[in-house]
Amino acid sequence: MILSIETATDVCSVALHNEGQLLASFALHLPQAHGKHLASLIDKLKQELSLDLRQLSAIAVSKGPGSYTGLRIGVATAKGLCYALQKPLIAVNTLEAMAYSARQYNLIQDAWICPMIDARRMEVYCMLIDHRGKVQSPTEAKIIDKDSFSELLSERYVIFCGNGMPKCRSLLEKRERALFMDHVVPHAEAVGALAWQRFQEGAFEDVAYFEPFYLKDFIAGKPKSKINPQ
């Protein structure tokens, strides 16, 4: 059994799989809910299934890219469980998990998937995955303009999804082969499905040294003063 954790965006979710089969999952779609609610979601999962965490074979976590704070909370929780339970850690790329979710729908044959996570202004974190689930273009931070994906869209259909997709839609929707899928969000259910594949391959992380895949350095904003200057 694998416990999976997803905290890369506003969605905070957990799931439990047994040999790749989903047993249960819980999710909250609340901004900045991870620190307050992640532990309670795991407890809810335990109670729902009368689960003893010592029964787990591994802990899986969405490694990013995504929210700096969200990723930190998810990875810290996963590593803490691994240390306490002496279980291996599995990391899954957040965008790959999103593409896995999109592929569960009836898609146009041979269409590629471009999951997008919102970054700053017209920038997104994205990757390209083919209809078989193979990565064709690795994760990158990309500024979207009217010429983005021009060559690819001249050759094949591409399905854009994720919370970064809406702000790019107006620039890309006039392309005949550009398709848009709503409601695809990072979720622990997809993380767990991919984690089972990695578990079978023995693709485990070094718990002591593993860090989230931030992709870009964190830039802290200057806090606003609550005291009016005299």
Rank of each mutant, 00 (worst) to 15 (best):
I108T: 13
H37I: 00
Q197A: 09
C161K: 02
G66N: 04
M122Y: 13
A188L: 05
I90S: 00
F210N: 01
L23R: 11
K224F: 09
N93H: 08
D217T: 14
E48G: 00
I90N: 01
I59W: 00
A39T: 14
A195M: 06
P186G: 12
S4M: 01
L172V: 10
C82A: 06
L107I: 07
V158G: 10
A193N: 08
L30Y: 15
Y68R: 01
S154T: 09
P138Q: 10
Q200Y: 02
L38V: 03
L179P: 03
R132V: 02
A76E: 03
C161H: 06
A190H: 13
H37F: 09
P223W: 10
T7N: 07
L30V: 14
G80V: 00
M116R: 13
M98V: 01
C126A: 13
E176I: 02
G80C: 00
A190F: 11
L152N: 08
F149H: 02
M127E: 07
L45F: 12
E19K: 12
D52T: 05
P229S: 00
S170A: 11
G74W: 12
F160S: 11
H34Q: 14
L3K: 01
C161W: 05
D217H: 15
D10Q: 13
A188Q: 05
S4Q: 02
K36R: 06
F149Q: 01
L28K: 06
R103E: 15
I117P: 02
R177M: 09
Q55A: 09
W196M: 07
N228I: 13
I117V: 11
C126N: 13
Y105W: 01
A178W: 01
L179M: 11
A99D: 04
G64M: 12
Y100E: 15
L81A: 09
D217A: 15
I219M: 08
L171Q: 13
S25F: 05
L95M: 07
R132G: 05
S25L: 01
E176D: 06
F213K: 08
S148E: 09
L194K: 09
A220P: 04
L194R: 09
D206P: 02
